[in-house]
Design a protein around this nucleic acid. Structure first.
Lengths: 206, 206
DNA sequence: TTCGGATTGGACTGTCAAGTCCAGTCTGGT
DNA sequence: ACCAGACTGGACTTGACAGTCCAATCCGAA
């Protein structure tokens, strides 16, 4: 993250292994609950390697974890995320999110949301990285809605950016409540409400 | 929380002072970021007092903090929260939430939501307390919507509980995004969408 | 007044985590 | 083969934090 990344292929693999394991740990136990020793143990590396690849220590490692988790989250929603441009696609996406939560027994919530909640007040740099992740995520939704509007499925006065932001908020809030109550109902209700709101901008019929 | 609460009035005051300061600290720095020594220093108490009033240590103190923060959050929304039974009241509530965020420079998010995010996976007992707080909060909204339905302002097929849950999710997600982006726009958009969704169940006209 | 329990002060222990340091090993290019 | 720099192992330092312990003080009821 700070320009000191060039390295050999062995080094690249080691670094990736570290980030990957750290991402797992942070998702399971939070950033504060994951020590560098935990990461060390989980990867079979040594303290010096952690600081070799992340001279900035835990903060720099966490920055890499944010990037890693962001990619993971997006990948988990693909290919749906790239084509949210029809009512059917939106519904499939909704169902996918809910199915994943069910599969995880409603634990963990959104990896990005959890990190944001924990780290936003604590580290300005990480906060802006996480805001960036949210913005990118929102832009995927926005792109789909814009396509629907251009195609005439949404009214011209529908604002894709605003609708996408409202949908993101519903998603995050729904996931937080689902994680807290250990029930899929909040995420279901939240996404249904968000999509109903989008649908209220449907052109003409329905 | 465990039945060992009876004490003199001096003791009650001390205990309240501890919980109050702990609630402040947890809101500012998170549960993991607030040490018992911080609480001790902030209250001018001693270690033994902390364990005298909270034999269960930090966990028990955090349970008390959850209760305290829950009351604070509800109080901050009163009297609006008790009378969310008209379109005007809903709008006033929305404006109040947003004004508070602006006043806090978009920092901190929802105290309850933040604790839930941080502690839900970590401590089952705290998780259920936080779920309870959310449920109570939701019930305030539900009560108002039910009154509106009974009064004929909402259609009979509108489900107050579901609408309240969707509104809570939008609120929590909006606050998380506001805290992360340091902008009031997410909470504004999220609440507007949620209330628009409620309004889509308005009886007849409008 | 006097006594017992409530309350308080603060030193002390054990554990754990971040970060430093240096010596040793590997690797790729010449 | 050889060497500079990348990479690795692991001991060590420093500090923080949860939780323990015991002696001292306060206070209300008898």
């Amino acid at each position: 993250m700070d320009g000191n990344e060039p390295m050999t292929s062995r080094g690249r693999r080691t670094r990736a292994r570290i980030v990957d394991a750290a991402a797992d740990l942070v998702f399971e136990r939070g950033a504060a609950g994951s020590s560098l020793d935990d990461v060390r143990a989980a990867t079979g590396t040594s303290k010096s390697q952690l600081f070799h690849y992340f001279p900035g220590g835990k903060r720099e490692l966490l920055a890499a974890v944010v990037a890693c988790q962001t990619e993971r989250v997006f990948d988990a929603q693909r290919p749906a995320l790239d084509k949210l441009d029809s009512w059917a696609a939106l519904r499939r996406w909704r169902n996918g999110v809910i199915a994943l939560q069910r599969q995880l027994h409603c634990a963990g919530g959104c990896p990005i949301g959890s990190m944001a909640d924990e780290l936003a007040e604590h580290d300005p740099h990480l906060r802006s990285l996480l805001a960036e992740s949210f913005a990118t995520w929102q832009s995927y939704i926005e792109r789909g809605l814009a396509a629907m509007r251009d195609r005439g499925e949404l009214r011209r006065d529908a604002d894709p950016a605003t609708l996408a932001l409202a949908t993101m908020a519903a998603l995050q809030g729904g996931l937080l409540l689902t994680k807290t109550t250990r029930t899929t109902r909040p995420i279901e209700v939240a996404l249904d409400a968000a999509l109903a709101h989008v649908r209220s901008f449907a052109a003409s019929s329905r």
